[in-house]
Simulated assay, not measured.
Amino acid sequence: MNGGLETAVPGTIASAGERAGDAHHARGPCPNCGTVLLGDYCHACGQTAHLHRTMFSLWHDLLHGAFHFEGRIWHTLPLLFTRPGELTRRYIAGERTRFVSPLALFLFSVFLTFAVFEATGGMFGHHGGISRDGVALTARQVAAETDSLKAHVAKLKADRAAASARHAETREIDRQIATAQENLAGMRAASVIATGTLDGPAIAADVQTGWPALDERVAAAARSPDLFLYKLQSSAHKFSWALIPISVPFIWLLFAFRRDVGPYDHTVFAMLSLSTMLLGICALSIGAALGLPGAVIGAVLVFGPPFHMYRQLKSAYRLSRFGAVWRTIALVISAYVAAMLFFVLLIGITD
Score class of each variant (00 low, 15 high):
Glu95Met: 12
Glu95Trp: 01
Arg96Tyr: 01
Arg96Pro: 03
Arg96Glu: 12
Thr97Pro: 06
Phe99Trp: 13
Phe99His: 14
Val100Tyr: 02
Val100Phe: 06
Val100Glu: 05
Val100Thr: 07
Val100Arg: 10
Val100Asp: 01
Val100Met: 09
Ser101Pro: 09
Pro102Cys: 07
Pro102Glu: 02
Leu103Asn: 14
Leu105Lys: 03
Phe106Tyr: 14
Phe106Gln: 01
Leu107Ser: 13
Leu107Thr: 06
Ser109Ile: 01
Val110Trp: 07
Phe111Arg: 14
Leu112Glu: 00
Phe114Tyr: 10
Phe114Ala: 13
Phe114Thr: 01
Phe114Asn: 03
Ala115His: 06
Val116Ile: 15
Val116Asn: 04
Phe117Gly: 00
Glu118Pro: 00
Ala119Cys: 03
Ala119Asn: 01
Ala119Val: 02
Thr120Ser: 04
Thr120Asp: 04
Met123Leu: 03
Met123Asp: 00
Phe124Ile: 03
Phe124Glu: 09
Gly125Glu: 13
Gly125Met: 02
Gly125Lys: 01
Gly125Tyr: 00
Gly125Phe: 00
His127Leu: 14
His127Ala: 10
Gly128Lys: 05
Ser131Leu: 04
Ser131Asp: 13
Arg132Asn: 03
Arg132Asp: 10
Arg132Phe: 07
Arg132Cys: 03
Asp133Trp: 05
Asp133Leu: 08
Asp133Asn: 13
Asp133Thr: 12
Gly134His: 05
Gly134Gln: 05
Gly134Ser: 07
Gly134Pro: 11
Gly134Asp: 08
Val135Lys: 05
Val135Ala: 11
Ala136Trp: 06
Ala136Thr: 09
Ala136Leu: 12
Ala136His: 08
Leu137Arg: 14
Thr138Val: 08
Thr138Gly: 05
Thr138Tyr: 08
Thr138Asn: 03
Ala139Pro: 01
Ala139Phe: 00
Ala139Met: 07
Arg140Ile: 10
Arg140Thr: 09
Gln141Gly: 10
Gln141Ile: 10
Gln141Ser: 12
Gln141His: 11
Gln141Met: 07
Val142Thr: 06
Val142Leu: 05
Ala143Arg: 07
Ala143Cys: 05
Ala143Thr: 11
Ala143His: 05
Ala144Trp: 12
Ala144Asp: 14
Thr146Ala: 13
Thr146Asn: 08
Thr146Ile: 00
Asp147Leu: 15
Asp147Pro: 04
Asp147Ser: 13
Asp147Tyr: 03
Ser148Cys: 06
Ser148Tyr: 03
Ser148Asp: 09
Leu149Arg: 09
Leu149Glu: 09
Leu149Gly: 00
Lys150Ala: 12
Lys150Phe: 02
Ala151Val: 02
Ala151Ser: 11
His152Glu: 15
His152Val: 00
His152Gln: 15
Ala154Arg: 11
Ala154Leu: 04
Lys155Asp: 13
Lys155Asn: 14
Asp159Thr: 11
Asp159Ile: 05
Arg160Trp: 01
Arg160Thr: 08
Ala161Pro: 08
Ala162Asn: 13
Ala163Arg: 06
Ala163Gln: 11
Ala163Glu: 07
Ala163Ser: 10
Ser164Cys: 08
His167Trp: 02
His167Tyr: 04
Ala168Val: 04
Ala168Ser: 10
